[in-house]
């Protein structure tokens, strides 16, 4: 079931949490709301769930205006950053809670809970208490609990935010596979651009209560509409008033005409991708992302004078500055058309 949000506004004590936000979440998609803290992404999620009432604007779930509906009638599943596990209940009672308050027969609840525990790989944990589970297990339990009531929409509020890096990575892949299996429309709130890029099929970038841009991960990365999106999605160097991705910085011979002279400050080996930090003649600093092979070929050392080709630098929202190839122009044009389709 798709979600449409139209011109949503919400103010807390003069702070504009949502400032005329319009978002489209296609049916069956996994959409990420991406932004720094205070950007309004969590408020938007709570407004969709009915946990926060917007000052104005509309929330449509499955084409119907849901503003007046209490959370229990919206058929949404909500997963909280800190799990919100019912501490005094076993895993089984946690997962079965939504069915219990709907007065479903006990036998049916039992069967359904067992199915869900299998789905989230917690078979055999039914009689434990949340305190006896790891963080990752608790979050999977919370997910099973949200799925138990067969929600039309699954809302995840920084679901992996409280977990350590390794478990987070594991759960991302797991969530992606789960979504392919269950196909429920899912909205995920995150401040981690890597997480959004990895899991989501669509990303809505938010900043200061507004939508900066929405689109597929590729669209956002290749054709950022604003400076904010450019710097928030993917890594970036700033050169004058233009931007360039580190992997687009090409190290070349200093005496080539199309290259600017620069001095190597530091070369860092990280495994597959490596970084070379440079200072341009004007004093500006950039870094280049290079492969292992290139690192071996270049053998950079601090103080070495090299050339850098920054011809792919561009201004966000504008066609690539120095791109004259037909291919580049075509991509830029496609980007412009896409932006027209998403006037946010």
């Amino acid at each position: 079931m798709g979600i449409t949000v139209r011109h949503l506004r919400k103010t807390y004590d003069g702070f504009r949490a949502l400032d005329d936000v319009s978002v489209e979440v296609p049916d069956g998609s996994l959409t990420a709301l991406l932004g720094p803290s205070g950007s309004g992404k969590s408020t938007l999620l709570q407004a969709i769930a009915g946990l926060e009432a917007p000052d104005s604007g509309e929330v449509l779930i499955d084409g119907q205006i849901a503003n007046a509906l209490p959370p229990r009638e919206r058929h949404v599943g909500f997963v909280f950053q800190h799990y919100a596990a019912f501490k005094h209940m076993t895993v089984r009672d946690n997962v079965g809670f939504g069915l219990r308050v709907r007065k479903r027969p006990k036998a049916e609840i039992r069967v359904r809970v067992d199915e869900l525990l299998h789905l989230v790989q917690l078979d055999g944990y039914a009689e434990r208490y949340p305190a006896q589970l790891s963080g990752g297990q608790r979050q999977r339990m919370a997910l099973a609990r949200a799925l138990a009531v067969e929600p039309r929409v699954l809302l995840l509020d920084e679901p992996f935010g409280a977990l350590d890096a390794r478990v987070r990575e594991e759960l991302r892949g797991w969530l992606r596979r789960l979504h392919d299996e269950v196909h429920v429309t899912t909205v995920l709130v995150t401040h981690d651009q890597e997480e959004a890029m990895e899991i989501a099929s669509r990303i809505v970038v938010m900043n200061q209560g507004r939508v900066e841009q929405s689109g597929t991960p590729t669209e956002l990365y290749e054709h950022p509409a604003t400076e904010f999106v450019m710097s928030f999605v993917g890594k970036v160097n700033r050169v004058g008033d233009a931007y360039i991705r580190p992997h687009e910085v090409v190290i070349c011979s200093p005496d080539r005409d199309d290259c600017l002279p620069a001095t190597v400050d530091r070369a860092v080996m990280l495994g597959f991708d490596n970084r070379i930090e440079l200072t341009l003649q004007g004093g500006e600093r950039v870094w280049a992302q290079v492969t292992r092979q290139e690192m071996a070929r270049l053998t950079p050392f601090p103080g070495q004078v090299v050339g850098v080709d920054l011809s792919r630098r561009r201004r966000p929202g504008a066609a690539e500055a120095a791109s004259t190839s037909p291919e580049g122009a075509a991509i830029a044009a496609a980007g412009a058309i896409r932006r027209d389709r998403h006037p946010e």
Binding site: A49, G50, L51, P70, P71, R72, V76, G77, F78, F80, H82, A84, A85, F86, K87, H88, F97, G98, R100, V101, R102, A142, R145, A146, A148, V149
Partner: peptide
């Protein structure tokens, strides 16, 4: 958070109090 979670799962105010809040403050 626990009360909000119960709300999204379809519990009424009384159910939230009886099943979530009261056991927690027992």
């Amino acid at each position: 958070e626990q009360e909000q979670a119960a709300r999204t799962l379809g519990a009424s105010d009384w159910q939230i109090f009886r099943l979530i809040t009261l056991p927690a403050i027992r």
